[in-house]
Simulated scan of single mutants.
Amino acid sequence: MNIYGDYGNALVLKRRLQWYGYDPVMLTYDPGDEFPEAPDILIGGGGQDSGQDRIQQDLLDIGQRLHTLADQDIPMLMICGLYQLFGHFFETREGSRISGIGILDAETYGTDSRLIGNVVAESSEFGRIIGYENHSGQTYLGVQVTPLARVTTGEGNNQKDEHEGARYRNVLGSYLHGALLPKNPAVADFLIGTAVEQRFAEKLPELSAPSSAPLSLNALTDQARRTAASRPR
């Protein structure tokens, strides 16, 4: 699934890996494909209810494999629709349930309210996270996960608490589109750094924009973050 620019998250990881001196291989996965043998990073995007219906059975079929990878601390980023299905279930407004795979201890319920607009959230690990939400499903976290961040502008997971996203080990779930990673390089470099350490038993020189990046990179990123954070919802 890929809406609201979520494919941009994969493109960011590929380019930043190149800047760090690696030669990344980016694979796509569609229902029915052979699942990669030893992935280093997994990225998933958002989709409407109809898209979730189409991928549901395949996701359940590979669910145990994904659980194993999660417990091996493989870094993952799941956005919106796949964030919901990495939880226990998504219950539509009509009361039907789309089963999830339960990597994230979370439940999602469809509502008549649409949560839409730019979001600013604070994370103790990643600093300020900025993105764009557009969802009517509202997600509630259980005790086995922690929120990805605390919302200061916008709604995030739901209209009752200040949580945005969820984290279990190195699995990150978020409602933020935009895409998320271009405006949040700290999150991108967390995924990259974790994957590099696991694959090669080495650390990146520093988890920030590499010296080989264009000189304007930080300025453009900062400008995009400031613009998004200042726009009214």
Rank of each mutant, 00 (worst) to 15 (best):
Y4A: 15
D6I: 07
Y7H: 14
Y7K: 11
Y7R: 12
G8C: 11
A10Y: 09
V12G: 04
V12F: 09
V12D: 06
L13V: 08
R16H: 13
L17K: 02
L17W: 05
Q18I: 10
Y20G: 03
D23K: 15
D23T: 07
M26R: 14
T28A: 09
G32M: 09
D33Y: 08
D33R: 06
F35Q: 08
E37L: 13
A38D: 11
D40T: 02
D40Y: 01
I43S: 07
G44V: 05
G46T: 01
G47D: 06
Q48H: 09
D49L: 07
S50C: 09
G51T: 02
D53F: 08
R54Y: 09
Q56D: 02
L59M: 13
G63F: 04
G63D: 11
R65G: 08
R65A: 12
L66Y: 14
H67K: 12
D71S: 11
I74K: 08
P75E: 02
M76E: 06
M76A: 10
M76P: 09
M78T: 05
I79N: 14
I79D: 12
I79Y: 11
C80I: 08
L85M: 15
H88T: 13
F90A: 07
F90H: 14
R93H: 06
E94Y: 11
E94N: 12
E94C: 05
R97W: 07
I98G: 03
G102I: 00
G102F: 00
D105S: 06
A106R: 00
T108E: 03
G110K: 04
D112Q: 13
S113E: 11
R114A: 01
I116Q: 00
G117T: 01
G117P: 01
G117C: 00
N118H: 15
N118G: 14
V119K: 13
F126C: 02
F126Q: 04
F126A: 03
F126W: 12
Q138H: 09
V143S: 14
Q144V: 05
Q144C: 11
T146C: 00
T152W: 12
G154D: 03
G154E: 03
G154H: 06
E155L: 15
E155M: 13
G156E: 02
G156D: 01
D161I: 10
E164T: 01
G165Y: 05
Y168E: 04
N170E: 10
N170V: 05
L172H: 07
S174E: 00
S174I: 00
Y175G: 09
H177D: 00
A179S: 13
K183T: 05
K183Q: 10
K183P: 03
A186W: 01
D189E: 14
D189S: 03
F190D: 09
A201N: 10
K203S: 15
S208T: 15
P210F: 06
P210Q: 04
P210W: 06
S211P: 05
A213Q: 02
P214W: 12
P214G: 13
P214K: 05
P214V: 07
L215Q: 14
S216M: 09
L217P: 01
N218V: 14
A219M: 10
A224Y: 06
A224C: 12
R225A: 06
A228V: 04
R231H: 11
P232N: 14
